[in-house]
Nucleic acid binder design. Structure first.
Lengths: 223, 223
DNA sequence: CGGAATCCCGGTGGATACTG
DNA sequence: CAGTATCCACCGGGATTCCG
């Protein structure tokens, strides 16, 4: 145990991988990108990860200053893990890798796990700030039992957990459909036709939201 | 062998990690970011990687369309591996992780491997396009026996292998010093004083180059 | 010589049972 | 609920051998 396996290379990438390169580690960080989570939350959302591994990874990441234990909701009653500022700096890296990996998500298979928050992540990864509208508006997403929204203001777009105050558009769908749309395997139009996606609100806003996410709506006259 | 271990999650990040998340894989891609490399080049620059693992990883990555075999220099005489466009899209991800990992490169230890191209990578990772000068100029770096340069033109900076045509600045150093400077563990001034870094050319250009890389020169009156 | 298959064996990691 | 302990399959590191 004293002999932690490392690459022993004097290089930023190798050193980074020595910290977050081992199996499951980046997926744990992914879960924490959506906010603090408890041990059992992580275990539930990472099927296949053993309890010993999770404990070991968490301890290791705490030691490296990537995550920390926080008490959420009251005085020490509920412990949880959260990203430190150093861990938070992994967000663009993880979003970038998630976008890259979209290329490789195939058809949904029976044995694949799906979680709403991964759709959330997909949307955040697809956000293209350069296409952010000048308008101030927000789009709400209800994915299974999770709700989040994209808030556009001052030409900046951000993905946030929770409901929007006055969304100009609301999308309701399931996690699998959401990931498929995010990965470009399914157009919003196709999803609507098959009843897997329900859109409410201003249809112009829907178009703006699709543009913001770099999505083809599935309607003709695009690319 | 038919049962490749995967995360089985319907998520871009998990799918991406199923492709490049295994041990050594991203380091192999890192080497190819600097241009095509042959099997033995890779083996030489990745100490600790076994021949079987390298062969397996290469085959796997070729199968996934991340890399491909190319014949460099003549007709099929010299085979080499190169990134495909898909693999090339990993560049920003790897540079981001390399920058993040800089935080964790400690003191150089005797057993650590160092390569000039990793310093090259470090510099590329530190390039901040927003600070690119309006001037058109280039800075040359001689790191051990490797030479590369940063070319600034049209407000864009890029890191390129090989010598510059008419560099306004030339830096000579060793790979370890270079990585340390890149990681902020050493200021250029400190490196010069200790004789590990030699700078030639226009000293104003040196300052501009440092700014481009987000480096403190080590001189007073900064931060 | 470049590229890769075949061994062996130690360490990682997956599954389950158990404990504070 | 939050981990710890234990078992064992299998991945990965090293050397050797093989093929072209």
């Amino acid at each position: 145990m004293a002999t932690k396996r490392t690459y022993q290379q004097y290089c930023g990438l190798a050193s980074g991988l020595d910290v977050v390169g081992e199996r499951w580690t980046l997926l744990i960080v992914r879960e924490l990108l959506m906010g603090p989570a408890r041990y059992s939350d992580l275990l539930a959302n990472l099927p296949g990860l053993g309890t010993n591994l999770l404990a070991e990874r968490l301890k290791f990441l705490v030691g490296k200053g990537v995550i920390e234990q926080v008490d959420v909701r009251g005085t020490g009653a509920q412990l949880a893990y959260a990203l430190t500022p150093v861990g938070e700096e992994l967000r663009p890296v993880i979003l970038g890798l998630a976008r890259w990996g979209m290329e490789f998500v195939g058809e949904l298979r029976a044995e694949d796990a799906v979680r709403p928050q991964w759709g959330f992540l997909a949307v955040e990864a697809m956000l293209d700030q350069r296409r952010a509208s000048d308008l101030t508006e927000s789009y709400e997403f209800q994915v299974d039992d999770e709700v989040f929204h994209i808030a556009v203001a001052d030409g900046r777009a951000s993905a946030v957990k929770g409901a929007a105050v006055e969304p100009v558009m609301r999308a309701k769908t399931d996690a699998a459909t959401f990931v498929q749309i995010g990965g470009g395997r399914l157009t919003p139009l196709m999803a609507m036709v098959t009843g897997r996606l329900v859109l409410e609100g201003d249809m112009d806003a829907v178009v703006r939201c699709c543009e913001l996410l770099g999505l083809e709506t599935g309607a003709p006259a695009s690319r």
